[in-house]
Every structure is written in structure tokens, then in C-alpha cells.
């Protein structure tokens, strides 16, 4: 924590609120999310579907389309509030300052342009290099993400690459203009495990080398635990817990995080039944009063229905938004007494 306060944060998100105004009501997809990210830090944004994690990622890049809108809060990138930046300014920021890696590489690659042309475009937009230098940079970048015969592959179209190779190309493009922040939205979810481990290893290595900070948006706690320094857990558009990755996964203090961790089958502590969080994520247009997790929470009491808990330090390095956090440290998978009957 000390080294963080010494350096100014690269990214400081304060009370971000991104809402969608639809026919059936206002969807508060992100409702008061705050976190900071130091230069070079790798953060995991985790939660189940409907948690709002992808919307946070899109908000950072100003990619929220109507009926969605950033209703309030600040996104300070080096002190500049980019939540209110002009489209012109955002275009300069995207790619150069913040790059994004999507789940499906086909959505970020243009199918009718060669990979080389797409990489070159990025460099022309964001650097002053001449043509020869740009080409050399592209070749070097493709090689650095493990694509052999790079000079030749520059002339290939995206569909001529396999899924894993395509994601490598996307990573190469993202890193081209040396951005200081990379937002990766489920970058390996569509890939097979052996390919996933290749890509994760590559991302970890390349990001450490370039010194960029990264936000990894994912539902997969196992991926997060292998990749990140710090975790922010979202539930129904709010931060429910944050802290160093090891600690959040080994000893979470919020009952939701606890439930998530316990519901992953763990070969080391095999039980006949998995711990399960009862019920389902509530309709975000019609959230319960007080704490959103209350109806599914084993620790809920009367107060949880009345007051929505604020994020506060709970134990050690953890902070959680909970009136009755888990204060005692418990060995993983021993905390809950098995799930109730389905």
C-alpha cells in the first residue's frame, strides 16, 4: 500500500455511474464504482454476468452508446477527467493512452484489411514514424507475441489466423502505440485452455516488459488469481470487495466473494456437494432495498435491508461493502458448511 501512495495513480475512477435508459426502466449497470490503479499495476475486475464489469471497461474508453450514458463520477487519467472528454480527445486517448482487447478478436479486427494494414494504421495515427520504421515496428511486435514469419504474415487477413493467433494479433495491435493502460475484456474466454495458458503467459510477459498497467475484466477467478496484483469484485453494478489478489481469493471478507470462491470445485478439498450461492442475481432494474446481495446472503440481518453498506476496511488489506463482513480468517473451502439442497 505504501508504494502506491508514494506515486500518483495512473487511473483514478471516482463514483462512476453508467446507466442505460431503456423502455422497461433505467438500468444502473454501473452505480458508484471507485478504484485506483498505479502505473504498471495489473488489476482484475471480476463478477458474474450482470455485475457491470464490462460496462466499467467500456466506460473507461468512452465506448458507451445510447441508450447508455455516463451519468456521473470521474475517470481521472493522470488527473485529466476523460469521462467528460470530447470525442476528438477520446479518439486520441484510445490506442495511444488506453488500448482495449476484446473477447472475440474478430470484433476488433477488420475482416477486409490485412493485419499489416491495420497495424500500420495504428502507428500512423499515434506516432510520427516513417513507413520503413513503422513496418519494422510491426514485424518486431508480431514476433514479440510469438507469431513466426512475421514479415510474411503482415500480408495475411484476420480469417487466415486461428483463434489463438488472432488474439495474439489483437494483443500486438494493442501494445503497438505503447499505451499506459490496457483494458482486456475476457481476453481468453473464447480460447481453449492450452491456448489460454499461452496467451495469459504472453500477456503477463509483454505487459511486464512494457510497464503498462492493465485491467483484466473476467468472470474466471482462476485466471484472475494467476494474473493480477489486485482484485475488484463487482455485484449489481457496485464494488463489494477489493484488495490484493492473494488475500481476496484465499480469505475474502465479503460473503459474496466467499460464495464465489467456494462454489469453484477445488480438487484439494473435495466434498460431495459444492457450496452454492442460493438464488440468482436480481433484476438490476428492480434491486432489493439496502444491500443488493441481501436476499442471497447467509449473514444477512435486518439492517442489511435498511442501509446500503459502503466500502470500508474490513480485515488486513481488504475492503468490503458489508455490514457483517467475515472477520475471521478461514481456510479456503472450509468456511461454509456445504450448500443446502437444490
Amino acid at each position: 500500500m505504501d508504494h502506491q501512495s508514494a506515486t500518483a495513480p495512473l487511473l483514478d475512477v471516482r463514483d462512476l455511474r453508467t446507466w442505460f435508459h431503456t423502455f422497461s426502466g433505467t438500468v444502473k449497470a454501473v452505480d458508484g464504482v471507485s478504484f485506483t490503479l498505479a502505473p504498471g499495476e495489473v488489476m482484475g475486475l471480476v463478477g458474474e454476468s450482470g455485475g457491470g464489469k464490462s460496462v466499467v471497461g467500456f466506460s473507461l474508453l468512452g465506448l458507451i452508446d445510447p441508450p447508455g450514458r455516463i451519468e456521473g463520477g470521474e475517470i481521472l487519467l493522470d488527473g485529466e477527467d476523460i469521462a467528460r472528454a470530447s470525442e476528438e480527445r477520446l479518439r486520441r486517448i484510445r490506442g495511444r493512452e488506453i488500448a482495449m482487447i476484446f473477447q472475440d478478436p474478430m470484433t476488433s479486427l477488420n475482416p477486409v484489411k490485412t493485419v499489416g494494414a491495420q497495424m500500420d494504421e495504428m502507428l500512423r495515427l499515434h506516432t510520427d514514424l516513417d513507413e520503413g520504421a513503422r513496418k519494422a515496428r510491426c514485424v518486431a511486435m508480431l514476433e514479440s507475441v510469438g507469431i513466426s514469419r512475421a514479415a510474411e504474415r503482415l500480408r495475411a487477413y484476420p480469417h487466415q489466423f486461428s483463434g489463438g493467433m488472432r488474439q495474439r494479433v489483437v494483443i500486438a495491435i494493442a501494445l503497438l502505440a505503447s499505451p499506459r493502460l490496457i483494458v482486456a475484456d475476457e481476453p481468453t474466454t473464447a480460447l481453449d485452455v492450452t491456448i489460454q495458458s499461452q496467451i495469459l503467459k504472453l500477456m503477463r510477459k509483454r505487459i511486464a516488459e512494457t510497464g503498462a498497467a492493465m485491467i483484466l475484466v473476467t468472470h474466471d477467478l482462476a485466471v484472475v488469481s494467476e494474473m493480477v496484483d489486485k482484485i475488484v469484485v463487482l455485484y449489481c453494478g457496485r464494488v463489494v470487495e477489493t484488495g490484493p489478489a492473494r488475500e481476496v481469493i484465499a480469505n475474502p471478507s465479503h460473503p459474496y466473494t466467499r460464495g464465489l470462491v467456494d462454489s469453484i470445485p477445488n480438487p484439494k478439498h473435495r466434498k460431495p456437494r459444492l457450496a452454492q450461492i442460493p438464488g440468482a442475481v436480481p433484476d438490476i432494474r428492480n434491486l432489493p432495498s439496502g444491500c443488493s446481495f441481501r436476499p442471497r446472503c447467509p449473514r444477512a440481518q435486518a439492517r442489511c435491508a435498511e442501509v446500503s453498506p459502503a466500502l470500508a476496511p474490513t480485515r488486513g488489506t481488504l475492503s468490503a461493502a458489508c455490514h457483517f463482513p467475515i472477520l475471521e480468517e478461514v481456510a479456503a473451502a472450509m468456511a461454509t458448511t456445504g450448500g443446502e439442497r437444490a
Partner: peptide
């Protein structure tokens, strides 16, 4: 989702 996964596996 992982918490629902556990419910279905248990069932």
C-alpha cells in the same frame, strides 16, 4: 455463472 454452476452440479 460460477455460483449457478455449483447449484446445477449439486442438483
Amino acid at each position: 455463472d460460477v455460483s449457478i454452476q455449483a447449484q446445477i452440479l449439486n442438483l
